[in-house]
Design a protein around this nucleic acid. Structure first.
Lengths: 202, 202
DNA sequence: TAAATAAATTAGACAGTGTTCAATTTTAAC
DNA sequence: GTTAAAATTGAACACTGTCTAATTTATTTA
């Protein structure tokens, strides 16, 4: 099959990860299979375990990649945003999830055994995404309350997450809610307003 | 093994469901197995499929049972609630999830194939839970805005869900958030206030 | 009560899964 | 060219959900 000379170890890792990410996008978490990844790249199942150590580690790498794409997506949206940058963030959150449902869901479907610490790079990626939100929240808060930005950003991300999750998993459809994103944005601005923000003050 | 005379068909269905619910509470969605349920009640795997038709149907029945427990839990909390019944609801949401993490998570881990309609009884249970919230939201809104209660309740459930989910799956711990419930409650009251509610006006 | 019918139950077969690891092949170094 | 190191394999193991022909048990009929 594949020869060592065809790929360096790093290239092989990238080859596996790229294919795995694609498979996850295609099939979703429940139908994802390491064996299928191996089959698609023409390596045996053993190689994947040698390179990544465990299925858990591979899944973490897949989700890390998704986080990078997601952060890039949000930054791109912010770069072309109009006056309401908060709305751009909420919209970016929703449409990334909608356009990459399987990948986005996989982030939350994957639950490593409790007590298993996340590796530092993964923690940084997640914190980085919240950081983007925090920055925009800080911009819209009055100077005196900038200190609340971090905690508020975390809470707003959770708020939007809840709406997005219910939108994509069918809960909102079942409850007759037809404008999840608008609802989320309304809640976000109510919270920001309560914290002293004024629309268009960024 | 088990004799037909030991259980009527209805009793058998209940026997399976009770054991399955217990196993789900014990192991969580990822490690749940229909075979293990069969082993524990002393029936063969085939019987479970004969009674429930599919694993999907069994999982739906498990989640339905969890919804019943959850709704009961919330009603009990409301029955002994003080002045802030909204706070009682949020607290009830959080501590049911915390005390039944595996069961609660299973509700959201289970994603039937897209397009597969949920059976009516299941839809009613879910809507019923939101109905409890809607009722309390209506009580706190001014008369002129009671019409917004349904939509607002859906949104608030999503909001709380997001916080609860991040609290239980480790996201908040990773981000340094230590008071998810307080944050959720704060957001909820900000939204209610924006809709004209006044604390203690129920 | 004995035979015939209906219902309930079984367990094996099938195609998958993650995981491990001794054996093999390929590459690099001497 | 030989040797040492690294990479790769794929069979084995213990699982999973799902289906279904065969079997057992219960009920009804004669």
């Amino acid at each position: 099959m594949a020869r060592r000379s065809d790929h360096s170890r790093e290239q092989l890792e990238e080859l596996i990860l790229a294919e795995a990410h694609g498979l996850m996008a295609e099939t979703g978490y429940a139908r994802f299979s390491a064996r299928e990844v191996a089959k698609r790249i023409g390596y045996s199942i053993g190689t994947i375990y040698n390179v990544f150590g465990s299925l858990d580690a591979l899944l973490l790498a897949i989700n890390s990649r998704t986080f990078v794409l997601w952060a890039d997506w949000l930054r791109a949206k912010l770069a072309v945003a109009g006056e309401d940058r908060i709305a751009a963030l909420v919209a970016g959150y929703f449409d990334f999830a909608a356009r990459n449902t399987n990948l986005w869901m996989a982030i939350y479907d994957h639950r490593p055994l409790p007590g298993a610490e996340m590796p530092e790079p993964y923690r940084r990626l997640r914190a980085g995404l919240t950081g983007i939100v925090e920055q925009e929240v800080a911009l819209v808060l009055p100077d005196a309350r900038r200190g609340e930005a971090a905690a508020l950003a975390r809470s707003l991300v959770a708020l939007v997450h809840g709406h997005c999750f219910f939108a994509l998993n069918g809960t909102f459809a079942l409850l007759g809610e037809e404008q999840p994103e608008a609802a989320a944005l309304a809640r976000v601005w109510e919270a920001l307003t309560a914290a002293g923000a004024v629309r268009g003050s960024g």
